[in-house]
Structures are given as structure tokens and as C-alpha cells.
Design a binder for these strands. Sequence first.
DNA 1: CTAGGGTTAG
Length: 598
Amino acid sequence: MKRPLTLIAKARGSPVRAYLSASALPETRRRTPEWGGAALSRNPLAAGTRAGAAPPWLAVQAALMSLVDSRVRSDWWDSPSSLFLQFDEPIDSKVCRHLIRRYTGQGKHLHSVFVFVQMQRVGVRPDSFTFAPVLKSVARLCLREMGRSVHAYAAKANFDGDVYVGTSLVNFYGGCLLIGDAHQVFDEMGERNSVSWNALITGYTHNRKFAEALDLFREMQADGVEPTEVTMVGVLSACAHLGALSLGKWIHEYIDCHGLSLNEFLGTSLVDMYAKCGAVMEMEKAFVAMRIKNVYTWNALISGFAMNGRGEAALQAFSRMMMENLKPDGVTFLGILCACCHEGLVDEGKRYFRIMKDEFGLCPGIEHYGCMVDLLGQAGLFSEALHLVQNMDLKPDPIIWRTLLGACRTHRNVPLGRYAARKLLELEPTNADNYVLLSNIYAQDSMWDEIAQLRAMMNQKALAKVAGCSSIEIGNAVYEFIASDCLKPEVHDLLDDIRKELKQVGYAANTGLALYDIEEEEKESSVAFHSEKIALAFGLIRSPPGSTLRIVKNLRVCQDCHVFFKLVSLVYKRGISLRDRNQFHHFAGGSCSCRDHW
DNA sequence: CTAGGGTTAG
């Protein structure tokens, strides 16, 4: 139960600690308590009790506030338990509903859930309007069992036929990574509208089931339900993750033709979709076309440039953003540091890392340190990198150590590599990638005994590597290939032919790292049939001559494939864009946009 | 009075 909580919290950008307790209700970490200990006059709810125009929800609020005043408890709002412990009067369900709405609206999700629970305790019956906000809070906290019992309660009270309640339930299950349950609730809903469809589709994208999200989008249309802006945000996000450029372009046209409003959400999704499909020009056009932009939009643009190897454009975008007086946030600097990293701009990176704290008062997160470690490590500045890791005010996570280990491989630094690997395996002993990475370092220096030891450790733990998988979009279809896949003879032969041809311009297979790979399957297929090469060969056969080949890979590209792709772009005069796990490689005329730095 | 949305290291 703990793990999915972290996952969803990370996905939603609000780290939480979820422990239900009556005495202490910890809140989302980033939020400073607004009402805690403060004078009651600072309570926004108290506004209505002052003289002047009264807001519409005044009646209930005023009643609440006078109750509060009579009890003289200024911390009342921060500890809703006092509502139930101290008041002799029977608690009204309207009061509870408002309380829950306010708490959820303020991001005080545990308070909201707590009030709901207390309502059951003292026998106050919620109405159908109470379920939506409490389910939102339950979803945010990823309290799965709690959500299930809320669901059961709603069913018992016959509220589950309500579209609002049903849609909230779909959203809850989807948000807690229980997409099967979300779909089931959706199927059983008596009444559905576009909002319910949207909840289900975004649920699928949250659960990283992108292809299924697109299927649902088709189903929705077949059902005669018009997509809305929110639908398109979800669908574009799925396109972005899949690298499905042609569908993304189709959505863009649909938006224009059907007069969907290009608001911040939709515009940002478009920018991000083009960025993640490697279509930098279209990304810029989509960005320029937007009327209203906010920090999300700029962040999508900046990281879009960064991941496409356009570091200088990312930095320029940042200065334009400054000129428009927009306040950058942590994500902005993540994009910037990432850009510096890909460009190898060590001093620039250090400068931005400094000004993010000094000028903008932003506290660097582990991700920012991760970028810095990568930046320093890839530049070969090992003592600085290590110093940063050992002196940062956050506990280094596995990614930090793996980044350092990766830099050690690039620069063949065995001693530091051993150290980083030891730290890494302490934290993450069951991740096969870690062993492979260290084994690659040993392989470079022909340290066979160490490699044998690693192999034994892996066998003992029965660790398996993630299979390499590449996809290529041709026309309106996406084709997927797995390394060591059964090859079509035509593709196999073509790969042979290509290899022969490339050898004439100086290609020599770089199998060094793969030969000592630990996975049996990998050894058999070796680098010659890495999934991206198969996709490339397939693309050369099937796509119209001269068109750009777009390939998406789930892992990072290996040295050999990188050289291979560069030469194919030269010899066959084809533009190729390869999306890595990390970034884009745009190949043309024998060179790559990453300048061999990745 | 209620439901659905965008950016994020390695």
C-alpha cells in the first residue's frame, strides 16, 4: 500500500504522508498551514461575518463561524476532531458537507476524509453532494481501502446511480492505479456524459495505458459523445507518451476545425505532444499560436527544447520567459539544467543552479541534484560530482548513484564506479540495470572475475532485465519490435545488407559491451538485432523514400546503434529521429543532434 | 452547492 502512494503522489506533484489519526493530521508537505494558530480574522471563511456584501454560502458559514467563536478555539480548523469532541449540538450534515468541500478545496485532504469518517461515527448521513469532494481527497491520498468503503457506502445509500458520484468514483479508482475498477464502475454507470468519459480516459493515461486510452477515445466517438478540451488533453498526453505524431496532428486539426478553445491546458498539451514526438518546429508554432501561456506552457517548451538537443534554444526561451515577468518554478530549472547537461555547459549549469536558490528562492529537489551530478560526471569532474553527492542536504537516492555510475562508465573510472555501485546495490539490490551498468565498467577493463561474480549474484537473485522495445509510426499504424524478436526474413536480410554497406564507410560493430552482458537473450541476439535497428530496417522498407523515420525506444540507445544510425542517415540520405528513454537523437547527414553526448 | 485537464533528473 505504501508504494503506490509514493507513485501517485509523485505523479500528482504533491508529496503526502498519509496516516489517519485523530490527534495529529499531517498535511501536504509543501503547503504552509494557512489557518494554523492564526487569528480567526485571517480565516477566509470569517470574511462573511464582517460587514459588507455577503457571499452566497454565507448562511452556513456564518453559523459555523459563530459556533467557532463561541468555543474560542483558534486551531479549530486544523483539528476537525474538536468539531465532534467539543460540540454538544447535533452535527448538521450541511455543516459537514461544507467543511469537507472547503478542506478538499484547500488541499487539506486528510481533514476532509476525517470529517467524513466522523460523520459515520456520530451518525450524520451524507448526501450525494458530499461524495465528490471526499472521493477527490481520498484519491489524492491514494487511500484505496477508504475509497472502496466510500464506494460501498454510496452504493448502500443508492447514490451510485448519480453521474457525479459515478464519475468521482471512476476518477478515484483511476487515480489510485486501480484502472480495472475504474472501468468497471464506468461500465455499470446508468448515465454517462463527456465528463465521465474524460475521467476514464485520463484514468488510463495516469495508469500509463496509453494505447488503451486512445482506444477509448475512439469508443467515445463511436458512442456519439463529443470530445471536449479535457478529452483532448488526455488523448494528447497519450500521443506524447507513445510518440504518435500523426494522431497528434489529427487532434490538432480537430481542435482547430471544431473550435475547441486553445486554453492553457490544451495548448500546453499540444506543445508537449510535439516536443515528445520530436517535432520541434511544430512545437514552436503551437507555442506561438497560444494566446494565454502560463508557467506550465513555458516549462513544456523549455524541456521540449532540452530533450530535443536544442539547449541554446531552451536557454533563450528562459530569458524570454524572464522578460515576460513570469516566475519560474522548480520544473523550469529542471528543464534548464537538463539543457545544460545535454549541451555540456558546466559553468552555465552551475550558474543556474545557484540563481535558482539565490535569486528565485527555490529549494533544489533531488531531481535538480541529479542533473548537476550528471552534468559534472559527464564532464569528468568526478571530485566535484562526488562532493555534491556527499554534501547535498537530501539523502542520495538510487538514481543519483546510478547517474554517477553511468558517468564512471563513460570515463572508465573503475574505483569510483565500485564505490557508487556499492551504494547503489545497498539501496536497490534487485534492479538488474545496476548490475549491467557495473559489469559494463568492468568489461571495458577486461575484469572477468568481477563480471563472473556479478553474474552469479544476478543468477542467485533471479533478476531479469527489461527487454528493449522500439516502435515506429508509418502512415497511421504503429509497429513495435522487441530485441531478439523473430525477424521477418526481409528485415533480417536488409539489416545484413545495410551492415555490409556501412562497413564500406568505416563501420565496425561495437559489441564490446553487449558480449559481456548478463542476460542470455541479449548475448544471443547481440547488438546486431537491437530493437531500434530492426525498427529502422523495417522503416526503410515500408516508408516513402525521403521521409523522416521516427523511432521510439523504451531504453537508452547503445553506442553501436548510435554509430549505426548516424551512418544510415548519411548513406541512405534519410532523416531519423530516435526517442530514447531520456532524450531525442535527430540524425542527419552522418551526425546526431546530441553531438555524441548522452 | 457536486464530476474530468498540462510541464518534472537518470
